[in-house]
Design a protein around this nucleic acid. Structure first.
Lengths: 151, 151
DNA sequence: CCTGGGGCCGTAGTAGGGTACGGAGTGTAA
DNA sequence: TTACACTCCGTACCCTACTACGGCCCCAGG
């Protein structure tokens, strides 16, 4: 189970070796133990960590934020109260993201539902009402139905 | 209500004028009508659109993806079935993001709850079980509790 | 009139996040 | 023992998404 090489971990996690080393340089991955030859040794934990980083990135967290998320857990012993505080800040942040995504989701569902479906190229304009005329050619629905409302 | 200048829209939407023009160049904002002097004229719609872009970006969509989202709505007349299809693909994508965020959320909540709260610097190690020893110093909880599981 | 605050445009520069490359060492299977 | 895959390291390069700059035009107020 132990002693995965960097290549093996990278393959499993779906990133390139260079990316992996880059994350290590950036402090997202701890320095692993080395073999006498100098090559890095990882365990399955590393795979999970990289995957987590990948996902968090896709969710719009910057590497800096991801490092914070990971550090939150890594040093709970330093100051628990402070850690809890930061965790709660993160929770609020994430909550907001979820809300925003749900708004987009909702808009997309309505957009999709406004199409007849498998029929030929024929669209219902907008079931929700008559709809004003826009002189600009901009799309509207994704914004008008709770446009990931800014507080 | 009409005839906002680029600066006014930018201020309302919380971006810089340069960013605005950049989005226009990138096709995220349609070319607005101009005054005789050449200056752009916008309406409130533009503010909403920019805000949508900002939020979507924070949620991890690239400008390319955001353009797709906006185009989805902008040209439903070209091919409704195809539009619906793409909308549904986007919906699935967004659904996945929401799931991943909820997993992170859950992990953060547990992490936060495992702290005594307002008490002094004293942490419960892990309420869920005895917990194995890790020889690496990496944090684990954010990954072990449904690590934004990859299908 | 003229000054200041916009706005217009094109181009250049920057930060973040990788990705590629070159040259050298290691390790293992035929 | 030779070939081949893999690792190491540092540096350089690339793409995305801005951000700044310089030079010019418009226009409202003092």
């Amino acid at each position: 189970m132990k002693a995965l090489t960097i290549g093996a971990v990278a393959r499993r996690a779906g990133v390139g070796v260079e990316t992996f080393r880059f994350y290590e340089r950036e402090g997202l991955i701890p320095q692993p133990p080395r073999r006498p030859s100098g090559s890095r040794q990882y365990d399955a934990e590393a795979v999970r960590r990289i995957r987590f980083i990948r996902h968090a990135k896709q969710l719009g967290f910057s590497l800096r934020q991801i490092r914070e998320l990971l550090t939150l857990r890594a040093h709970p012993q330093t100051s628990c109260a402070e850690g809890k505080e930061r965790a709660e800040a993160k929770i609020a942040e994430v909550e907001q993201k979820i809300c925003d995504l749900q708004a987009i989701q909702q808009a997309l569902v309505e957009l999709s539902a406004s199409c007849a479906g498998r029929g030929p190229d024929q669209c219902q304009p907008n079931p929700g009402g008559p709809g004003g005329q826009h002189d600009q050619t901009m799309g509207t629905d994704l914004m008008t139905h709770r446009p990931t409302a800014y507080p």
